[in-house]
Amino acid sequence: MARAFSPKIVTANHLLEGDVIYQTADDRWSRHISEAELITDEAHAQLRLLDASRQANVIVGAYLADAVSGDNGPEPTHFREDFRRTGPSNYVHGKQETSTQPRA
């Protein structure tokens, strides 16, 4: 039997800014993970990743990252994604500079 599919989001870096972005259900790129589309079906995930990869003049390096549903939309499960949605821990730079992102 196939293993249960763990929910995913599509994430990438913005081509010009280089910062972390998330694919939304209405096909925008958001800078907030809370607005990401949480994908619970494997076939749909592959499709959405393909949609993302076609936008090569907007984004770089799209991939599927594990996420879970939280109080404010999707939340990361791995610490790497937690850093990506926040910024580095040695300075208040990156996303944490401009917005309040809850830290797990």
Binding site: G18, D19, V20, N57, R80, R84, G94
Partner: peptide
Amino acid sequence: DGSLTEDEFKPLRLMNGLYLQLHA
């Protein structure tokens, strides 16, 4: 402007010392 893909551009930017990291 879209005439180079990332696959084409990546080796060129690396040759010029430009990497893509986690946040930037």
